[in-house]
Structure formats: structure tokens, C-alpha cells
Nucleic acid binder design. Sequence first.
DNA 1: CTCCTAAGATACGTCTGTGTTTCTTATTTG
DNA 2: CAAATAAGAAACACAGACGTATCTTAGGAG
Lengths: 192, 192
Amino acid sequence: MGERRRGAVLEQALLDASWQELEEGGYARFTMDAVAARAGTSRPVLYRRWSDRSELLRATIVHALQRNRVRAPEDTGSLRGDLLALMSEISRTRAEFVTMMSVHLAGYFEETGTDPTALREVIGHDQPHALDVVYERAAARGELDLSRLSARVKALPFTLLQLELLTTLKTVPVAALEEILDTIVLPLLGTD
Amino acid sequence: MGERRRGAVLEQALLDASWQELEEGGYARFTMDAVAARAGTSRPVLYRRWSDRSELLRATIVHALQRNRVRAPEDTGSLRGDLLALMSEISRTRAEFVTMMSVHLAGYFEETGTDPTALREVIGHDQPHALDVVYERAAARGELDLSRLSARVKALPFTLLQLELLTTLKTVPVAALEEILDTIVLPLLGTD
DNA sequence: CTCCTAAGATACGTCTGTGTTTCTTATTTG
DNA sequence: CAAATAAGAAACACAGACGTATCTTAGGAG
């Protein structure tokens, strides 16, 4: 009837619709019908591009990840500032992914027997790196003695943030991040 | 044909089979058919007791919880000992529940729009209490100054254990618990 | 302007699981 | 031992979603 989208434009629209559908309806209501309807088209258009529901799902996740990269944290001049910036960034950009992975996609992993850690690694991939950068900066400033810290302690900012995200499924307020830093992380890092 | 179970005996067997089915197949394969087959009976027997799949699910969870209560921790004479005992206990008895709730039942919560926290509270219900008991004992011994501790810090042993369970989905080795205690929890509690 | 590709609509067959009905037969109860 | 009760088997209609096949028509390529 009306106008018709084609090629890449259409494909992006399909993937966007697919992601939205996942966010709102979850995996349970993630049907080819629903995605097609939301995108204002019909199932065959989807099947021409992805052979399967699970292929569409994978493509959708990759698509969303590409649209939403974690940027490297800027140097704020202090360990506390760097950590706060990094955690805020992760909290803001990754909250929806954590929700997606833990809540919505559990059914998918279960169904396919896929390992969730595989995708979790993709998500968390840049964080350890970014964290290390922050720690090395702090060590260079003389704020930190890296050799005295165990892996578990070093991972703590990310660990606690992750749990906060997992349990609340929302962006963590800066005040909560500061509390985590000031009462837990920084005292343990020996910056006191 | 063969022998027939009846009444309460049958009902327990049904719920056991139901729980097993959830553990092995997850919510995705948690069908009335599958449960009936595993219990060696047929669907009408299930429907005579529970009107719904979701009712059967709820009953199954309650059943499993009742079979598996967290015992109050015994006094070991020290805060470290008490915490280690409590965490081991929780780790051992709750690992399967955490897996169930986070991995298998996500689909259920999604489908029904139920809040996972409702059931999580049932599970975690005794823990804060048990933790408080442990802290009060320690305060009575003079090991601890309770007034200086924030809620977040006090919850840390349980928080970290929970995350460990969530990410590994297995019973946490005692060595890991000791590391958590010695390098994170106890230093922060001011027992150093 | 014409041809060709692919979008979008519709309809189809299939499969899986639900919840129900009917019937036979084992077991408990009085 | 007789009667009531409930277990277990089989079949049913129904709904939702899958994946496909067919047809039309819009929009880009030559």
C-alpha cells in the first residue's frame, strides 16, 4: 500500500523492532509475528533474512551491542573519579543488557542449551580492560600499590555494580555508586 | 496395570517429579506432559490437584522450599567461624534454588508478569535474620562495633555469596568463602 | 519507459502443548 | 464383601506459533 522500505534501511528497522520487542515483551512474547507486526511488515520479510527465530535473536543482540559501545573512561585525575566515571558509564549503558541477558534471555539459553557466559563475556569484555587502565593510572600517580591486590579485590567495583544491576535491573544512582566506592571499594584498595 | 499410589503419597511424588523436571529440563521443558510422564502417570492426575501449570509450579517451589530449610548457625566462638559456617550452609543448601530462580524461572516470571523479588524474599527470608544473630553475637563478644556499620556493609557476606552463586551456579568452595571473608568482609567490618 | 527484484499480504499445513472428557480398573472404606 | 473413590489411559477440540508457498505491487536499475 504505502511507502516501502528496502535493503539496509529495512534491515535496521527490523532489528530495532526486534530489540524493542525483546525489551518490552521478553523472550516469551518474542515471536516472529510480533516482531513483524511491530516493524510494520510480515513474517516472510524476516524469513528472507534470518532462517530461524534464534538467528534473528542473535542478530538482534549483535546489532544492539554495536549500537551501544562502552567508551574508554577519561582521566579525571583521581582513582575515585575514574572509578566513579567508569561505573556510571557501565551502569548507564549496560543496564538494559544485563536485564536482557539475565531476565529475558534465560529462556533462550535454556531452550538452546547455549552457555550464557559466552554472551556475558562479550558484554563484559571491555570492562576488565578499562578497569586495568584505571588501576594503572592510579598506580602511576602513586595512589595504589597494585602488587598487594588480589584479582578478587580488584574486580570488586565491577562485581558489586553487576550485582546491583542484576537485583534492581535499573541504572544505579550515582549516590549508590559513591557509597559502594567510599565504604567498600576504596577502603579495601588501601587508599585510606 | 501395576500398583497405584494415592493421596498424599502420590502428591509428594508428583511434586518431586515436578521439581526434578524443572531442575533438569528447565522451565522451557516444564510441560504437564513431561511432569506426568516422569511421575509415571498422566495429565488428568495433575489437573485434579492443580488447575494450572503455573499453580503446579508454585506448589512445586513451595514444596522444595519446605524440604530444604536453612538451619540457624551454631555458635562457633568467633565471628569468622560463624560467618563461614553460615555462608557454607547457605551455599550448600541454596545453590540449586538460586539456579532455579535466576536461570530456569526467569521465563515464568516474564510470562506471568510476576515479580521475582516476591519469591526471592521467601528464599532469603531467614538469612538477614541469621546474619543479624551472628553480628549480635560478635558484638556481645566485643569483636564488633555494630553502630559503625552501614546496611550495605553488613549485607556484604550475603551479597558476595549471592553473586558468586549467580555467576557460577554451583556450590561455592570453602576456600573461596574464606578468601571473601579474609580479604573483603572482615577487613571492612573492622575486625583487623 | 520497461524489466526485475524484493516488499508486503494472505493463506496453508504442521507441530506442540493445553485443558477436558470419557472410560476402565485398582484400592480404600464401611 | 460391596460400594464409593480416585488412578491411569486414551482421545478430543483448541490455540498459538512455526515455517512455507503464492500472489500483488512498489520502487530501483537499465
